[in-house]
Amino acid sequence: MHQARFKGRLFPFLLLAPTLAILVVFLYYPVFQTFRLSLYRVAFLGLRKTFVGFANFSDLFHNPDYIHSIVVTLIVTTAVVIGGLGISLAISVLANQKIRGARLYRLLLIWPYAISPAIAGIVWLFLFSPGYGIVNYLLSLTLHIAPNWLGDPFLAVFIIIVASIWKNLGYNIAFYLAALQNLNTDVLEAALIDGANYWRRFWSVTFPLLSPITFFLLITNITYAFFDIFPIVDVMTKGGPFNATNILIYNLYREGFEYYRTGSAAAQSLILFLGVVVLTLIQFRTSGRHVHYGGA
């Protein structure tokens, strides 16, 4: 095999320079700054900085509200990831059947992904708002009940989870559908000839063959639940009621941009960053072993 080689050592770096410049300016430098800021207590507007070491971090872990926020985040993330992946897989399998209008169904299923999370939040707010929500309007007409969806801590978390799952369904389904359509049919045929029934074929053949994509979606969905559901929370509950939906990223926003506690917010974003790194490492270590990439 012939491998193209660059003449001179500088040339490849020259080609990489634009990308590196963007990474340094927009990624590495801010990360470095965030790390530095997390060691300071910053006066509002950044006028004054006092070095406080790791005090921002220890303050956070001694703050029951912050611990509560961690718990909420873990609950929401677990529910969004498991619920989201489970439902998308089920829908994808159904949508993968050879039926009339399959292409239209697939198109419609991927649709929610195209709208922005803030708009998704507003749509769900119009559904479940106690004042002008359509759901309660219909419920009170038919069943004469009107649950306070967003005013009750338990129901509010539930609605946030459901809305977040719904928003990301399109993304997950797109990947699962693509994976299902590229499955190695030889193995499935072999299983069919061996007389395996539908469930058996699904759990013993299809599901393991999908594991690479499930693994990939697991990571992206965790990141989604950690960071990207912020607009949904902001529009629907603003972290309430009673801090029930105050996920870490929302808490960070509030402290950083409403109370101007830049130092604490920087510390929080580092904790979030480390959390995602650790989670990803654990995922790679454990699930990685069971991921079946097919082939030899």
């Binding site: 708002s129 106690p130 004042g131 306070n148 969806w149 967003l150 005013g151 009750d152 509010a156 629907m236 509950t237 603003k238 309430g240 009621p241």
Partner: peptide, 12 residues
């Protein structure tokens, strides 16, 4: 009745 959000002028 609580609408579930602090400072929720529109909801109230």
């Amino acid at each position: 009745a609580y609408t579930g959000k602090l400072e929720d002028w529109d909801g109230a």
